[in-house]
Design a protein around this nucleic acid. Structure first.
Ligand SMILES: [Mn+2]
Ligand SMILES: [Mn+2]
Ligand SMILES: [Zn+2]
Ligand SMILES: [Zn+2]
Lengths: 139, 139
DNA sequence: AGGGTAATTGCAACCGGGTTGCATTACAAA
DNA sequence: TTTGTAATGCAACCCGGTTGCAATTACCCT
């Protein structure tokens, strides 16, 4: 994905394009797996941790990406689809592979509705499946 | 719940009853909400953090309690029902109230099955609903 | 182009939950 | 009572995440 496309994606979410932001977004779009802050730190020796951190926070705030708490203790991030507003109906299941330790968006698997006890209201739902991914299965 | 009953619960899970363990289990059984390590620290000024930590780990290992990652950054714990083996079919949904910041087991709400893409195998599933609990709703 | 302002970035230090090594204490078998 | 094992207490550590502040850069107006 070239800079022109990256800048467009950023602008669509009202994020001012900068060098770091283009690079981070590039990584996030090209990775098939969800990406952590420390992943980015290792990818960009030159960029500072807090800059990367704030970049992710900005992206998340503007709904360019969403965060994934897969229970591993390290937050991961993945790009939202263009029309995503991170509403309950935009949510999907996430998968954590216990073998390769990678986390994936199952974008095509939406979260089933759940009947809460009376008196409980719902704001959002997270669903994480742990298991072995198809790559590790084959290998 | 008296010590006799607490000891019985401990013995059933092959855990040697000690003073600390009885006290911790008592708190866990009497609380309606899930309990964190720091909750216990504040409840027992005298008992050491690492002792409480290892008590929880022992309980979890022996399947007397299960841990809940509600996304708040602090692990919570709650007692399992007597016949629980923490298998996928023992699992239930958890609820995190964004108002009172408490986490509850919805023991009666089992986790719906989900269709994974081909090649993915399932070991366990977590489902956390965020919203407002019935207590906070009424208040 | 130059000056002023706001946003971004870099650096360092901090925070809190969780975890571990090791010494001490309690317990129970021999 | 001796002796081995498990539990507890204390201290220090780890790491992901977060923040304050100074330096740099981008942007706007003249
Ligand atoms: Mn996702
Ligand atoms: Mn539970
Ligand atoms: Zn895998
Ligand atoms: Zn509540």
């Amino acid at each position: 994905m070239n800079n022109r496309e990256l800048d467009k994606k950023l602008s669509l979410r009202k994020i001012k394009p900068t060098a770091v932001r283009e690079l981070v977004l590039k990584v996030l779009t090209e990775e098939k797996k969800a990406v952590s802050l420390s992943d980015l730190e290792h990818k960009f020796d030159y960029a500072d941790k807090s800059t990367l951190y704030r970049t992710l926070k900005t992206f998340e705030e503007k709904k360019l990406i969403h965060s994934i708490d897969d229970g591993s203790g390290t937050l991961k991030y993945a790009v939202c689809h263009d029309s995503c507003e991170c509403n309950p109906n935009d949510l999907h299941v996430h998968f954590y592979c216990t073998r390769c330790k990678q986390t994936f968006c199952l974008n095509e698997v939406s979260i089933p509705t759940v009947n809460l006890p009376v008196g409980f209201s719902l704001e959002s739902v997270t669903m994480v499946v742990k298991g072995v991914c198809s790559n590790c299965r084959k290998g």
